[in-house]
Nucleic acid binder design. Structure first.
Lengths: 335, 335
DNA sequence: GTGAAAGCGCTAACAT
DNA sequence: ATGTTAGCGCTTTCAC
């Protein structure tokens, strides 16, 4: 079912059909009606691929993620809400699931979709610096270092301070930290928040208690196993995200350690799943849905080019949203 | 950055670059190495749009949804897990957010993406019959009536029976039902399960207690307001999905009714959010993530064309997964 | 082993 | 008001 089929059936040229479908001027009312009729009969819909190749304006915004897990889908929910009523549609692309290592998925996805398929893109946790091409881009929780694009994130440093203070207040002194994905600014800030708060409290952080979980359950579980096998086991673990924290709880269970009686665990993100595990996870909330919504609104401003209106002008290069401690049942004073 | 740029820089023709990039035979090893080098230097990535227009094979699977809300994102999580290691990437498209009524988004999205952009698609809650075109399709929780495509759903009828029995067991006799989206098979089955169970228990269902919420918070809230304003108010509401049930709880609160003391509420789906509201929602679980995963595996079988292997042959036209009651705090005996 | 040329479905510029 | 033409970036014969 192509535009040529419609044209043939309606007895006009493809160009005329195109004009009618896209509401361009210069078509007789009679012709419009007739073509519309045929379009409806045949159930014709313009191919996104073909039209985007030619016209460079698709009315579609991209959300580029490594994979669809609880973090990115929360972002997506917010993005979806924000896009309603803007006239844009949302296309979420998960480009990090290829087997050959997921480095550089964001650059790859952007190159493959940008310029043609989508009018602009929200990049979720891009770990590499972005080539500022022709496609407007907004980054969420981006790569460390100077950002070339507008950026939305949450106050990771403050969140880490809150989590660490919470553990210190409970009486923990030997606390392990499971770091996030190297390269991400949030990862750096959470570690920094943890270390400075510990130091400020006069509590030394043993190097063997500083591990990397990469924000991923697998590596996090491995790191947790290592740290919990130490002769001088920590009484608490602060994991850089909830997925890692949940993995820590599972490892603790495997090892016969009760949470929080034998081990306190704190996460980060407050994904819905964090409240559903047993025990419910103490964590740091980031307003994920709002981050997604803000990013989309900013992107719409960028794409529409009215720097004056709406979210376009509301914030400049960087929007940082607040974080908050959510105390639940995975933390308690050490035994 | 196009293939022509790479070709020019490498001193070969676009055709040769294409062959190298796609690993076709008939290129000298020296040339391959050189072109690879230039590709890496320039950071070239083949445009998904252009290549898909020409070649009809993209390695991308689509998940078509009306919007990204808790239900569809759970499906997405499962789909994402299932697609890992298959060599396919996932593209989720939300085509129902256009302002002009969301009727027919599934047909529209499929026409726009199918055949070119994606090799196959999972359609989530399509409300209209599908044109079985060239693109392989698997439907999740589809339109009522005979399905022309392989289908995954959960046992809605059984789930509704369980929920209704739960309310009857608690002693409720005046129970309202907030129906789902007309046209969806799941909607019909849940209502049928409710009505038959009530009848079987010898409890009449007053027509004014049978309402439609359309699976959406807005209409559901409206229906809830109507039903709770009745002189002879129901003591319990069974909503056809969690989003509606949550809306009911909010309306009850507005009206000064305590849940579950003054009104019991049961939902359906067991989206993560259902456990997080106050009070935690009694609901019926559907294995949403598994449904997404199964649908994707089936689709991969369809696209790869090996009907013999794996999920392709594991089930035929219809896979129905079990549902289960999840009793939480939103239900109690009537006052 | 490599390149020239055609064409995927569509839209925009330019005829008519 | 309508049609003809060219070309978006790529892949695929088919010559060479």
């Amino acid at each position: 079912m192509t535009i040529t089929d419609v044209a043939a059936r309606a007895g006009v040229s493809p160009a005329t059909v195109s004009k009618v479908v896209n509401g361009r001027y210069g078509v007789a009312p009679r012709t419009i009606a007739h073509v519309r009729q045929v379009v409806a009969e045949l159930g014709y819909e313009t191919s996104l691929v073909a039209s985007s190749l030619r016209s460079r304006r698709t009315g579609v915004l991209g959300v580029l993620v490594a994979e669809f897990e609880p973090y990115s889908t929360e972002i997506l929910k917010g993005a979806s809400r924000a896009v309603a009523g803007t006239g844009y549609e949302l296309l979420a692309y998960s480009g990090g699931t290829r087997t050959d290592g997921d480095e550089g998925w964001e650059r790859r996805s952007l190159s493959r979709l940008g310029g043609t398929l989508v009018d602009g893109a929200v990049l979720v946790t891009p770990t590499v610096a972005l080539v500022t091409g022709a496609t407007p881009v907004v980054a969420i929780d981006p790569h460390a270092g100077p950002a070339a694009v507008p950026t939305v994130d949450a106050d990771s440093h403050r969140g880490a301070v809150l989590a660490t203070e919470h553990l210190l207040r409970l009486g923990h002194r030997r606390v392990a930290f499971l770091g996030g994905r190297p390269g991400l600014e949030s990862s750096r800030l959470r570690e920094e928040g943890f270390v400075t708060t510990m130091r400020a409290a006069g509590v030394p952080v043993a190097p063997e208690l500083l591990r990397v979980g990469g924000y991923r359950p697998g590596p996090a579980a491995e790191a947790a196993r290592a740290v919990l096998a130490l002769a001088d086991r920590p009484t608490a673990v602060f994991a850089a995200n909830d997925l890692s924290a949940i993995a820590v709880v599972e490892v603790a269970r495997e090892l016969g350690l009760a949470v929080p009686a034998d081990l306190s665990v704190v996460g980060f993100d407050n994904i819905p799943e964090s409240a559903l595990v047993d025990p419910p996870l103490t964590t740091v909330e980031q307003p994920l849905q709002e981050m997604g919504a803000r990013a989309v609104r900013r992107l719409v401003g960028l794409v529409d080019g009215d720097a004056a209106a709406g979210e376009g002008a509301a914030w400049g290069d960087h929007l940082r949203l607040p974080t908050a401690l959510v105390p639940r049942a995975s933390t308690a004073p050490p035994a």
